[in-house]
Amino acid sequence: MAQTVTQSQPEMSVQEAETVTLNCTYDTSESNYYLFWYKQPPRRQMILIIRQEAFKPQNATENRFSVNFQKAAKFFSLKISDVQLGDTAMYFCAYRSTQ
């Protein structure tokens, strides 16, 4: 069965030191899976920021990055605190089955 991941937010402008939240929804019939947030700075390779395991109830955090994972709602957001110039990038959420 195909899984779908949707990001609906357009380009965003944020001032340094602010906090920004990026939203992602997905569709799956599986109960165990991984969700990821990646960033791709201009003219550079994609970088993994954070990973969420669907079978762990606590939200993942990594330095200034944290997620809001709502399994029942199939919602997965990324919060970037204290935004810095180096955070300028395209951001992508991704899904991977454990199967």
Rank of each mutant, 00 (worst) to 15 (best):
M1G: 11
Q3I: 12
Q3F: 10
Q3D: 15
V5E: 03
V5A: 08
V5D: 03
T6F: 10
Q7N: 09
Q7K: 11
Q7M: 12
S8W: 08
S8R: 05
S8D: 11
S8E: 09
Q9S: 09
Q9T: 09
Q9P: 09
P10M: 12
P10F: 07
E11Q: 15
E11I: 10
E11A: 14
M12E: 07
M12K: 14
M12Q: 15
S13Y: 11
S13E: 09
V14G: 03
V14H: 02
V14Y: 05
Q15T: 03
Q15Y: 04
A17T: 15
E18L: 00
T19M: 06
T21N: 13
N23Y: 13
N23R: 13
C24E: 02
T25S: 15
T25G: 08
T25M: 12
Y26R: 06
D27F: 03
D27A: 13
T28A: 04
E30V: 04
S31K: 02
N32H: 10
N32C: 08
N32I: 08
Y33N: 09
Y33F: 15
Y34M: 14
L35N: 07
L35T: 08
F36A: 09
Y38C: 02
Y38T: 03
K39H: 07
K39Q: 11
Q40H: 00
P41R: 00
P41H: 01
P42C: 00
P42I: 00
R43I: 01
R44G: 03
R44Y: 00
R44W: 00
Q45I: 00
Q45M: 02
Q45C: 00
Q45K: 00
Q45H: 01
M46A: 11
I47P: 04
I47N: 08
L48D: 05
L48G: 10
L48P: 06
I50G: 01
R51E: 13
Q52L: 02
E53Q: 13
E53C: 06
E53I: 09
E53P: 02
A54F: 01
F55C: 05
F55P: 00
K56G: 02
K56W: 05
K56S: 10
P57K: 08
P57G: 01
P57W: 04
N59C: 04
N59V: 02
N59Y: 04
A60Y: 07
T61G: 02
T61P: 07
E62S: 14
R64D: 15
R64K: 15
R64V: 12
F65M: 01
S66M: 05
V67I: 07
V67R: 01
V67A: 01
F69H: 12
F69P: 05
Q70F: 07
Q70C: 01
Q70G: 00
Q70I: 08
K71L: 15
K71D: 10
A72H: 11
A72R: 08
A73V: 03
K74C: 15
F75D: 09
F75W: 12
F75Q: 05
F76N: 05
S77Q: 12
S81V: 03
S81K: 14
D82E: 15
D82K: 14
V83P: 04
V83N: 10
V83I: 08
Q84P: 04
L85N: 14
L85Y: 15
L85A: 14
G86S: 14
G86D: 13
D87I: 09
D87W: 09
T88F: 07
T88M: 12
T88G: 11
A89N: 06
M90F: 10
F92S: 13
C93D: 04
C93Y: 07
Y95F: 15
Y95E: 03
Y95N: 04
R96P: 01
R96E: 14
S97Q: 13
S97L: 14
